[in-house]
Design a protein around this nucleic acid. Sequence first.
DNA 1: TATAATAAAGTAAGCGTTTGCAAAACTAGC
DNA 2: GCTAGTTTTGCAAACGCTTACTTTATTATA
Lengths: 330, 330
Amino acid sequence: MKKRTITIYDVAKKADVSMATVSRVVNGTGKVKEATRQKVQQIIKDMGYHPNAVARGLASQKTTTIGIFLPDLNNAYFNELAQGIDDVSKLYNYNIILMSSSISHQNEKDVLRSLFSQQVDGIVYMSYDISDEVCDLLYEKGIPTVLAGVVDYKRQLPSVNIDYKQATYDIMEKFAEYHDSIALVVQDKSTNVNRDFRCKGMAEAAKNHSTVQFEVIRAGYGYESGLAVFDELKAKDIQAVLTTDDSVAIGILNAANDRSIKVPEELEVMSAMNTKLALMARPELSSISQPLYDMGAVAMRMLTKLMKKEPVQNQQVILPHEIINRKSTK
Amino acid sequence: MKKRTITIYDVAKKADVSMATVSRVVNGTGKVKEATRQKVQQIIKDMGYHPNAVARGLASQKTTTIGIFLPDLNNAYFNELAQGIDDVSKLYNYNIILMSSSISHQNEKDVLRSLFSQQVDGIVYMSYDISDEVCDLLYEKGIPTVLAGVVDYKRQLPSVNIDYKQATYDIMEKFAEYHDSIALVVQDKSTNVNRDFRCKGMAEAAKNHSTVQFEVIRAGYGYESGLAVFDELKAKDIQAVLTTDDSVAIGILNAANDRSIKVPEELEVMSAMNTKLALMARPELSSISQPLYDMGAVAMRMLTKLMKKEPVQNQQVILPHEIINRKSTK
DNA sequence: TATAATAAAGTAAGCGTTTGCAAAACTAGC
DNA sequence: GCTAGTTTTGCAAACGCTTACTTTATTATA
């Protein structure tokens, strides 16, 4: 069976018009007489013509494709963000090219370049952190980019986040009322958001409570890390802990449970992600709610504006957060 | 700043060779004198040339891009599969275009067609189920496709799965030894895999135990559905339940816990997904282990072969499953 | 009815590569 | 040094579409 693909040229011939006209009706650009439009449309339907996105991309220099960059495909945090992005991208008919940097951690730049070479119209960048190098690359390339759930040190890229510093400060203040040994468990101390926001939020709270011991503990990534860090918490006699990651928090919760340590009576646990895992935990996990889905959606919406060169008033969006007290805090 | 993009033509000119030669060194195709190769490569590096994937795609009719189709971006089951796919696709340098059908549930066909028009070299299709229509479309199009974690009724598309019927049968047999009221909780009774495999596996076990009550219950999707279906289980006095989805199982677990019903003493709960959620649950969730990551990886590996037209011995791969007894079963 | 506008349609030049075929440049054999 | 056989290169035609520019058809105006 010879199934040569049907091109715009075939349609043009059959409809007895030029390919330019067909292109116009397909894209709804330019003026076409109603009668012609109808005829062409009918023929398109009959022949089952579907425009070739690649050719279109080459010719128009627009691919209606956005790149989404994330470190890990199998992670509730990024998944919820991605969902927001995905839904909005559908609304605007953008396709998504996914790039995860999971395996290749150092060559994020290559991954990005690969995105560039695919001629994506825009990029949503998500990660635990963004290096200055990557940030510069993105900035220089001049391709519309928005960061979701990450901050870049220089604040030159559009982004959407919550106020991490304030959120951390609030929790710490609350903990400090009842406890004198409090920990902030982060996955990596050196990420921008931890270094410049969360730790500072904690430090600020510390100023108000000179008798209280505040500590930053590094746990690493994922559920097992939570399980593992528990002993350190106990050794240091921590009474209340704020983690940046739900999985880690659940690890701590379960480690406590497995050792018959009562949460929240003996240890308060609060997380800072509020993915849907929080509800599945027992006791249900209290958390700062980052509106992840919304962050993704807002980021994507902003990106569409950027791509269309529409003016964007505020390029550093801070979405409101809440503190959700469930059963893992008093 | 005028940043005209650097094309192969620019490189050719600077290197004083034809673009054909540059193309050859970039792609490593054809014969190029070593000296020339080196020179060109150096210039490519100096100029910072990066090939344009879109043009390449148009010219070669190969995009080194695969489409991955899934119903939901934020779902542990598909995420683990996707991770396997992603890792392998990296190994073979394929890019990924993601298409979720979440919003647009009826027009899966349109979503696929959009994938076609992007000229993807291959497709990995994941879903709860696949309609005959979609299946036919995929088949007719002739583009290499493999199903991961789904079976199509006609068995015409390559796929990778586990033996759902056997797995279900095994669990049911085990349950039937100790209980006389057993449920299979599915998300949708009418999907191929439930109708043709799981229910049949159960039915087969039922034949061996005429005094035991077996029941299929429809719960719907997600954690809340699990919470919700619990009362029905209790009303029917179910003593052991197998669910197809971890979230649903955790819902049941937590509902039981919230009502002080002891698992596994009063109710045994087994799931059939074994995502990483299973470990986070308390009690830890017993599960049929579908090797999701592996399934994704194998599917992708098979797809690469298909795309290269390498022979593939077995196009209906059945991966081994295990039954993992944790704390939610006796 | 002739003429200026305006709407509709067509022409053809890209977009940045790949690749079959032809030409040119070597190599080796004699 | 010439010829046949190989390597290396270059040429130019796709790939399928968009779009600036032109030409032609249609209307409205006087």
